[in-house]
Amino acid sequence: MTITYNPIIELSNVNFSDRGVPILKNITGSFPEGRITTLVGPSGAGKTTLFRLCNGLISPDSGEIIIKEKAIETYDPTELRRKVGIALQSATMISGSVYKNLSLPLSLQGKQLAKERAIELLNDVGLDEELLHRNVKDLSGGQRQKVSIARTLVNQPKVLLLDEITSSLDRVSQQDIEELIGKVNKKYGTTILWITHNLEQALTIGDYTWVMMAGEVIETGESSLLNHPTDERVKRFIRGDME
């Protein structure tokens, strides 16, 4: 199948290993600008590692990563990380209030986040505005995930890397977040890369999908591929024989 689109991130023969153990093997492929690509695959497949490469938190051992037609190394790391924003799988918080966490992306640049904007962000992710001055250690796992998403949006990234951002959310909250991300994608043309364990979610929200296993990309294409996979391993994964 041939897909024609403008790639915003292109990877060619990307390898990454840790202390001699290969974690990503010869990854080649691209992500279309302005679209939503979902990434699925069993635990340990290397999905998070791929995101960390795209955000510049780590560099590949070999191979090339191109962001907007420029090699990733040519970007200033801080600028790159603001443009290619990541919501980490762990939804890590800095100690302090929700407001402090939401303003972090701006306070790192010596700027302030207006209180109205902070409340707006809370509303967007479906959190009550009275949480603004709550200490993050008193939040539930799901609430933290929502704060983490809102915080990533503060930098208004061109590309959003979302790593399992709805894993601790109830069904309604999950749909709220899906709607929000869909809106961000439409309104600002933000490219979305979304890792999820939920295959139904991968199918419904994704335009395109990558299936990864054991450090390799096994299948890519329009998300409907999840309905009729060709690779035997992907079939088994979708049936739920793996993990």
Partner: peptide, 16 residues
């Protein structure tokens, strides 16, 4: 390390 990585991932400098 998680906190350090978070700040880096949001565009903070190593010192921050």
């Amino acid at each position: 390390q998680d906190e350090t990585e978070l700040i880096l991932s949001l565009g903070g400098t190593p010192k921050q």
